[in-house]
Design a protein around this nucleic acid. Structure first.
Lengths: 146, 146
DNA sequence: ACAAATTATATCGTATGCGATATAATTTAG
DNA sequence: CTAAATTATATCGCATACGATATAATTTGT
């Protein structure tokens, strides 16, 4: 019985420090991203756009591990800021195609300052980062959702 | 120059999988917590309460790595549900003391089903969990915030 | 060919976390 | 001893993520 209650100790959770670290990272990014006029999720979305130039919303959802409804509003905001352009696909009118604009492409150079600043803070050693990311991606790809 | 742009690839980020895993874990917990009438943050807050029985809001903030304003509303909701009792400290009237109620204590037995269910899903091996948690706590305790 | 199932997106309501700011209680300085 | 600084909490407004649900376009099954 006592053994069972141990399952409910904060220190024995995997979820708790994951969630707390995510929030802490977010808090660190926000002031830096403010200068780019981007929120955190807009920033990672732009990372995909900088890499791919154009994507379906559906592929973006997969790439970002989010739900489609989370992206809908976000993309409209990025469009409003002029960083992307949104259109229905001709081939399959259900699909939304998001395209990087010149304005969005320009933002990339300013954005480099963000990882540059943070990399110097050495939160973890290179080896630790490698291990940490492997574990995170194992969790992300794991089949235990829903 | 190309080297610099690599800093902006999604796959090279530490923040991105952390955030994505946190969301994924949240999505996994939510249906289980619904049965307890708790949200995720209320759940981890209750973990502290089950362990400590009574705490200052200020200590709770530290334990949960949150900001005080995030807890204010949350605690009121837990009070409304009857799981905790909230009162100003006599010693220092700035302090809020949160106390577990009988109702809240009762919830603990029902709550055990949550970690019991999830532990069987083996998201990571025991060794991996150990490493993962060490890295998370290194990040959590790191001094790079603000 | 056409009804039923599936897919991609949108809408709505709820919960969260946070920064900025305000306020009340306590501590510190001079 | 009192004015100023600090501490603990509260309030407000914003951004996010999601589930449930709805809708339009496409695919499927017969």
């Amino acid at each position: 019985m006592d053994k069972e209650y141990e399952l409910l100790l904060l220190e024995n959770q995997v979820c708790f420090p994951t969630y707390a670290v995510a929030n802490k990272i977010l808090r660190r990014y926000q002031p830096l991203l403010k200068k780019l006029n981007l929120t955190y999720t807009q920033y990672v979305t732009m990372m995909v756009m900088w890499e791919k130039e154009a994507v379906n919303e559906k592929d973006l959802v997969k790439a970002l591990y989010l739900k489609a409804n989370t992206l809908t509003d976000l993309l409209r905001k990025l469009e409003k800021k002029g960083y992307v352009q949104i259109a229905r696909s001709e081939k399959d009118k259900r699909n939304i195609v998001i395209r990087l604009t010149d304005e969005g492409r320009k933002l990339k150079d300013a954005a480099i300052s963000v990882p540059k600043t943070l990399i110097d803070e050495h939160w973890l050693t290179d080896d630790e980062v490698k291990t940490y990311k492997e574990l995170l991606y194992k969790l992300l790809k794991g089949d235990w959702e829903k």
